[in-house]
Design a protein around this nucleic acid. Structure first.
Lengths: 191, 191
DNA sequence: TCGAAGCCGTAACAGCTGTTACGGTAACAG
DNA sequence: CTGTTACCGTAACAGCTGTTACGGCTTCGA
């Protein structure tokens, strides 16, 4: 397997461990076990643990961005695109729920880690720009401040809902999350 | 110092370490250092690390509940109480920002930890009941489903905003967070 | 003043951590 | 078929982890 293919595989293993065992058990040995290899391979593909985490974090962001791009392209209009992109950020099924836990784990891991913090801030800024653009496209007449405030609130709601749903799926089933999203969009006049 | 006073002090130390160094550096030695004592004292006050974390988590919840009770009592009407209680959940100043990071850390620590998960779910349920009650008191004519959906969306927005703001204060200053809250409340017709 | 009791700092322990070094083996050019 | 190269599994290392054991010290009743 090539170097980059291994890096993708190991990043996936990082996500697996993060989602199933939590950040406290995110060790190189655990990652190697999840990837079905030894620590030797891991340390040959990454100079150290920190680089492994950064790569996994960055790759997760790229995957999310690609999926959002695809959803936007599929949607017929800005309104539908906005809803679709926001919905993919929630924990509506097992896959996105696991992803949300991974997301949370990286956020917690970023505390006191300047590199991961910078990565998070850069990614989040791109996310704000994307949602603001979609809100603006849906309501072209809104002043900029209304656009950004609305976009930020939508982002926060989705982020919070994903965190709550992934840690307590019974209390926040998919239907409830969808209702939350629809009610918020309706409240902002984006239905 | 009494046993319970020590437990409070050590819980505060847990919060300190969690907020300043992150979950990966949350060791008994780090907690002891933050509390200005040795690991001997820590292990005399708690049977093990897990019990220490559970106690710190539970105490944080109790403090939050007490503050919410006080805010409700101070507020003149349900509408003001709702806004005040929600606002205290955001990261509007340095203290609440640190608290939000601690909150996030516990959430990440709860992954794969049944005890901490149960604690979180119990606390979050109490929170949902509280916010739903305040929404219902503000709009007594709303049907139950509208009340809960609105309450859940408000909770998610505040939770998400706190997480975003505490990890990227420059992008989400207090004024922006307040605007997000007001816009959301206005969108739901709760102004 | 004396003895007892328990608090808690010190030091040790085994186990796990990230990281490094070594060596066997597969792949590949000639 | 042979020599070389690079991959990666194995094993070791020092350092840190949670936890335990010990013993000096303070405190307090008689």
């Amino acid at each position: 397997m090539s170097r980059t293919a291994h890096q993708v595989e190991l990043s996936r293993a990082v996500w697996d461990v993060l989602a199933s065992q939590g950040i406290e058990r995110l060790t190189i040995r655990a990652v190697a076990a999840a990837a079905g290899c030894t620590t030797g391979l891991v340390m040959h593909r990454f100079p150290n643990r920190h680089a492994l985490l950064k790569h996994a974090r960055q790759l997760l962001h790229e995957r999310t961005r690609e999926r959002a791009d695809a959803l936007e392209a599929e949607a017929g209009n800005p309104r539908a695109a906005l809803r679709a992109v926001l919905a993919q950020g929630m924990a509506l099924d097992e896959r996105t729920a696991a992803e949300s836990i991974v997301w949370m784990g990286f956020l917690a891991a970023a505390v006191g880690d300047e590199d991961l913090l910078t990565l998070h801030r850069t990614n989040n800024k791109a996310w704000r720009v994307r949602i603001s653009r979609l809100v603006s496209a849906t309501e072209p007449d809104w002043p900029e401040e209304r656009v950004t405030t609305t976009a930020f609130a939508l982002i926060a709601m989705v982020e919070g809902a994903a965190a709550l749903a992934s840690t307590d799926p019974a209390a926040y089933p998919a239907a409830v999350q969808s209702a939350m999203l629809d009610a918020t969009l309706a409240g902002f006049g984006l239905t």
